[in-house]
Design a binder for these strands. Structure first.
Lengths: 204, 204, 204, 204
DNA sequence: GATGAATGAGATTTCATTCAT
DNA sequence: TATGAATGAAATCTCATTCAT
């Protein structure tokens, strides 16, 4: 660590891009908006990144790598399947809590626009599903999860539920406070693992 | 009424737009692509629609109205909550089966980009959640669904699961045949209503 | 005169055009604006007039012919030169009083934009100057007007003064009431014929 | 300071615009015509000016500011009212002599189209009238000009006369040589100040 | 590394005009 | 006469990207 902290302009550009993309949307913003927000010259964006797309790519890839790594770590523990899923949901929701703009950009501009973004992103996203599916799959082998629901399918359902709840917060369709976030972690997993229905014997 | 129906150019433009949006994406396509696909002159798109956005708007609003109507009808029956949810899932999946391009456009370009599209769309989307939530809510009052999971929240989870599965098909992350579609209807509902976990007493 | 007055659509279009041109300007208005204002279908404008330009042409030519005729009539009388000029100024100002929109259109869109409009208009406008110049010229021969000011030149000055005053009213740079209009007739002529300066012998 | 002055592209665009506007008219020319004439890329026009309108605005405002300044300076001297008016007429005619294209653009496209151009321009134009009116007004207080002709009114008349003569040159309705220009300066003022009529005692 | 003027392809949109009915 | 859907050339403006300094 040096006394004169060199200003990391590259980082500044990425951070500024998050704010700008979140505020205006990827398509609606101009490269100059990013430069202005970062307080750097126009051309510097092109010094560090080859294109506007590349800025978004970098943002996504950086963050998604962390998520993949995290899922792997969680899966390596000896926790129960439900606990593992809860940890994954927790991680994603905490990510949103910590940097809502970044998560908004990733969900709204990348995950949901996989169209425009080449196969690279799709493969990354798929990898996350695969890792979640692996957890489900093992739980099925262990007789903890029902065998009749495809693991891949269950993974999509699980991730889709989380993403939709995040989308609800992002677009103000759902109240969003510390308490709600904490509750959401439990409820998503309770819904997906335990189901909405009360067990037959519980019913009045 | 004549045997040879007058060509409805407005309709032709809308139908062409679905194909073009699905193929190239809303942002990547030009208005001339739509006109070419529809076999009409450039300006006619602007004769019937004020702008490129407005074409997408119309497409979404048209289809979404059908969905809202359908949910209302389903809710008006005396079926069980699980059956109602299954009918909703069936309808959406059948919609995809019947016109995958249109559903792709609605999911990829509108639902997931609610950002760019004003509050109008958000309100429409919200209305669908609300209607699903109403079904859940009643099931809770009736003691069929667990009371501890907010109905709004459950609705989001349910819809998110369906949308993600559709996204899986759209982006070829999931096999997509008649059998898969039929299975998906059951499985999504089984996951959300019954949960992934086997009931305790079933476990070995 | 018939009991069922046939609606003169051609006239209606011309009258509507005056209002629309005055309100929005020739370039800023669309042919459909004229049709709407006239309460006729789009294509009818093209039935009666070959083009948008032609509508303006017709308006100008119609009115300008009246003015040329009027100048000729005035010149044919035995009134004094000053009286003749005063009658011309009166006629123009009365025209404005009677139909300010039409005069606005003629001054703002034609007279002052002679550029865009071919030589036809220029020749018409020139003819008016020539007729005024003839009056001045004769007054010079008769020893009533100073001989050292070219008649052509004096005509331009005279007409320019009137047009500028009209412009002042049109753009609200000058108060515009019945009294002002009446006063203007006198003052323009007094300025041009008598001059702004008091005669030497009158000065204190 | 280098011998080879850096090319001022912004200036080049403005100068090119004058030529193009004068030649083709503001509405009839395209932005690309300006860029071509200036020898710069299309987009540079938009880099320096927000719009085509803004190019014309800049041209007008630049020149008009010079004129307002000049009137103020002339009025600050102790010359006679007639001399002051003659200096103003001289300045305007010299401006035309020096850059006929620019004056054509200002007269034909702005002054005479005050319609399209917001109130900003109208206020500028009005200010010129006001300054001329102030000169007249003082001459009236001093007993040199007739009191019965409103100063505002006289200013309009005076300016209108000059503008119409310029228009005569612009549209080739009047011969235009060095001699004619010099004569015009005298004659306009002689007309407006001294009047067209010979004084009674001079008449035969 | 850093700057921002310069480039120009390409997009949306407008609207005068045509024409089948 | 009268209609207005249909046409498509042309215009403005945007903005990602390049590049000389």
């Amino acid at each position: 660590m040096s006394a004169t902290a060199a200003p990391d302009r590259r980082r500044a550009i990425l951070d500024a891009a998050v704010r700008v993309f979140a505020r205006q949307g990827f398509h609606a913003c101009r490269v100059s908006d990013i430069a202005d927000e970062a307080g750097v010259a126009y051309g510097l964006v092109y010094h560090y990144f080859g294109s506007k797309d590349s800025v978004l790519d970098t943002l996504f890839l950086e963050r998604w790598a962390v998520m993949l790594e995290m899922i792997a770590e969680i899966d390596a523990t000896h926790a129960s399947p439900r606990t593992k899923l809860e940890q994954i949901a927790s991680f994603i929701i905490d990510s949103y809590d910590h940097d809502p703009d970044l998560m908004k950009v990733i969900i709204v501009e990348v995950t949901r626009a996989a169209n425009s973004f080449g196969q690279t992103h799709l493969r990354q996203i798929e990898e996350a599903y695969r890792r979640i599916a692996a957890i489900v799959s093992r739980a099925q082998s262990d007789g903890i999860f029902k065998a009749e629901i495809d693991a891949e399918f269950a993974a999509l359902t699980f991730y889709g539920a989380i993403e939709q709840v995040l989308t609800g917060w992002i677009f103000d369709l759902l109240p969003r406070g510390q308490e709600e976030l904490a509750r959401a972690k439990k409820l998503i997993v309770e819904t997906i693992c335990g189901g909405l229905e009360r067990e037959a014997r519980e019913r009045v």
